[in-house]
Nucleic acid binder design. Structure first.
Lengths: 196, 196
DNA sequence: ACGATTTACGAACGTTCGTGCTATTTTCTC
DNA sequence: GAGAAAATAGCACGAACGTTCGTAAATCGT
């Protein structure tokens, strides 16, 4: 089917546009224009703006996983994999995987007070992400790489906060050192909890 | 003048609305309706939507300073004041000073890819905020409360990241423990750098 | 209390939004 | 290559957007 190919390329562009303008600022007319197709032709692929937003979130999640998790899973479980996730995350910001900064950081703040299916989906994905981070931490504990008194939820919270903080300083404040700073913080935090 | 009183109450409401819907989602018609006044009457106070946004940001900054800095300045400079700022920040989230979560966290992520006067103003205010945090840290160093090898920019980055992380977990993920977690992280980080 | 000035309103503008329809073109199937 | 099915375009809609303008009403200084 050609339709699904078109759909893919629409969503590819939609993800980039939404990372710049927000999921609510993502507009069907603007998107159609950028792709050189008609509003109604594009619209027919989704049936509603909300469906377009949901599909865009899904596509962004794929990219997120591909860029951050897939490479990190090459590393052996435990400390190396946990560290690889952190490095993937920061390099994902540095590389500008989404042109407007982390799609999910932006979506989280945009939709934290907008109940509905999109919020539900974003929340669910963020829960999954934090959950994955916790799991990686727990594995590192199980392997004996991290001290047994490490609280996975607590550490996952702190690491995620550093990532979002790096995104903020890098994109809004144009602070080129932000990523270095985050890296330093992650390393010192993790090495303090590490078992020699 | 009555106009300035009206203007104030418009902006008071605008801040709340913008914290829920975003500065771009803040709409003149909606705002006018909520205040029981006409679109054109409201519009006349600002002359353009951008001016309304800028005035809203200014009003939010006043509230931010009033809720976070003013109380903390009661504390003696050094470690106590630094700690008070951190506690103010977290209580400011818990108390729901802005109904949709921290206005500036939201505005930062919304405008990090939207060049223009609003972005400039938000960036400037965030620079001021981080700067004030750095200054409080530097004071604590000068007072001999923090170890002399503490890097103020680095620590300010980390503290701010924890605040934003708390906002994220609290508002999007409905994680009631988020603030406790952030508090724990702040305390353990600061006490590690403290001079006994 | 009156005249000057500020403040607010109502109606309308041109655009853009999301969303339906109906055709027409393109693609797939046999 | 003909016929079925899918994909796209064209057009129109009602609503909401930011903005303008002329006018009425409220408020002000004296």
């Amino acid at each position: 089917m050609k339709g699904s190919r078109t759909r893919q390329s629409i969503l590819e562009r939609a993800v980039d546009l939404a990372s710049l303008e927000g999921l609510e600022g993502l507009t069907i007319g603007r998107l159609a224009e950028e792709l050189g197709m008609s509003k109604s032709g594009l619209f027919a692929h989704f049936g509603s703006k909300e469906e377009l937003q949901l599909a865009t979130v899904e596509m962004a999640a794929e990219r997120y996983i591909r860029e951050i998790f897939t490479p990190a899973l090459q590393q052996p479980r435990g400390f190396p994999r946990l560290m690889a996730i952190c490095e993937s995350w920061l390099s994902y910001i540095r590389r500008g995987v989404f042109p407007g900064g982390c799609f999910f950081a932006a979506a989280s703040f945009e939709f934290d007070s907008r109940p509905g299916p999109v919020q539900d989906r974003v929340r669910r994905l963020m829960d999954d992400w934090i959950g994955a981070l916790e799991r990686a931490i727990r594995m590192a504990k199980d392997e004996g790489h991290l001290r047994p008194d490490v609280d996975p939820s607590q550490l996952a919270f702190e690491l995620n906060a550093l990532f979002f903080g790096a995104n903020f300083s890098f994109y809004l404040r144009n602070d080129g050192e932000a990523i270095t700073r985050a890296q330093r913080a992650v390393e010192s935090r993790l090495s303090a909890l590490r078992v020699a």
